[in-house]
Design a protein around this nucleic acid. Structure first.
Lengths: 206, 206
DNA sequence: GGCAGATCCTAACACTTGTTAGTTTTGTTT
DNA sequence: AAACAAAACTAACAAGTGTTAGGATCTGCC
């Protein structure tokens, strides 16, 4: 009863069903904008224009420019973390685990390009304490990936390679898909995924 | 005679020996600044402060904020291109060529971190026509790298992999060293270079 | 010592930034 | 039709932007 009341009050204050929708539209448009002009170079007036509204009107749905950035960065971070948790719980061999993770990263880069790109490149502009929070999550995520690799080495399932360097290499390689997105060339998405997985997994095999 | 005159006039107009030195100092400080705040978020007043001078005084040595960015981006681009030309001319086998190039990229990332980082991440802010120019050089550079790989495949010296994807993977992986730089951890530069080369080269071997 | 030129400074410019206040329009409910 | 809330608008704010003008100061050379 009390809980319901608080919940309702919260919903009513922060967002109703309708401006939740509008808020999402704003964030979506913002993602596209931030991706190709950068967060710093995108003004609220720019954003307002693509949304089809006056700049001041945006503040009926969001609280600040950086709230948009926070929403994007943490949405992406959460998706990666919860996927990782599922993989960690699975009983598969190390190489298969890594392939699953690599494919997930590649698909995220293909299907949620704007969001992932911003989370990768514009997190610097997060205000504290969100910045520290984000970096902690990131560090923890990479650490856990490194643990998977280390575990695989100890079990003699994969080649002996510095886990940190392997993770750095894999994640960076995938985030480079950004530059493929920027200029859709002859190479198809499928070719890209197949070949990149091949390259990155082959380098881990014994 | 005429050539010399033009050369002299140019030198005198753009920079004398003395403000060339000062100009270089400004660019060096700017590189550090741009790297950790981003080009857009760095103001000329910020730059002036680290140089130890008033903002307006900078304009005795440079012509505009974006001239600094141009200087950095094209300096880096030229270094990579001329190194590539040397490798192209060499008679070595494909795998050795690729290792040379990979090592050069890694060392540039280790030794000229600020410059390379900015060239990698802040080129968007170049004004036209420099932007198009830069992107053309970049595309051409990657194309030539791809040709080396394609040639190696035809000669049966390396594994059959999509050249474009291989290049994308290699370059992106290396540019990820940025995040190692950002937080000097337990891993040494040597370990990093050794392991990354191992990973990236192993994935090319037959 | 004094001239010349390089380099600095202060002040200001025109403009853009994110955001707020106050008001009017819009759309739904009674 | 009246009333209410949601969401749009106009106008403005304080602060910060890159850059220029004009004058002061410093430096090295005759």
């Amino acid at each position: 009863m009390l809980v319901l009341f608080i919940f309702d009050a919260c919903m009513a204050k922060i967002q109703s069903k309708k401006n939740s929708t509008k808020k999402e539209i704003i964030i979506e448009k913002a993602a596209k904008l931030f991706r190709d002009k950068g967060f710093g170079a995108s003004s609220m007036r720019d954003l307002a224009e693509v949304v089809g509204v006056e700049a001041a009107s945006l503040y009926n749905h969001i609280q600040s420019k950086s709230e948009i950035l926070q929403a994007i960065c943490f949405k992406v971070a959460n998706e990666f973390i919860s996927h990782l948790e599922a993989v960690e719980r699975s009983p598969e061999p190390t190489l298969k685990k890594m392939e699953t993770i690599i494919r997930f990263h590649i698909r995220m880069m293909l299907e949620q390009y704007e969001y992932v790109y911003i989370s990768d490149h514009e997190w610097r502009h997060l205000p504290e304490p969100y910045l520290s929070n984000f970096l902690n999550q990131r560090r923890s995520y990479r650490k856990r990936l490194g643990d998977i690799i280390e575990n695989g080495i100890q079990k003699n399932e994969i080649k002996n390679i510095e886990p940190y360097v392997a993770i750095l290499t894999i994640l960076s390689a995938i985030s480079g898909i950004e530059s493929w997105q920027r200029s859709r060339k002859s190479t198809s998405a499928e070719t890209l995924e197949t070949n990149m997985v091949k390259y990155l997994i082959e380098g881990l095999k014994k």
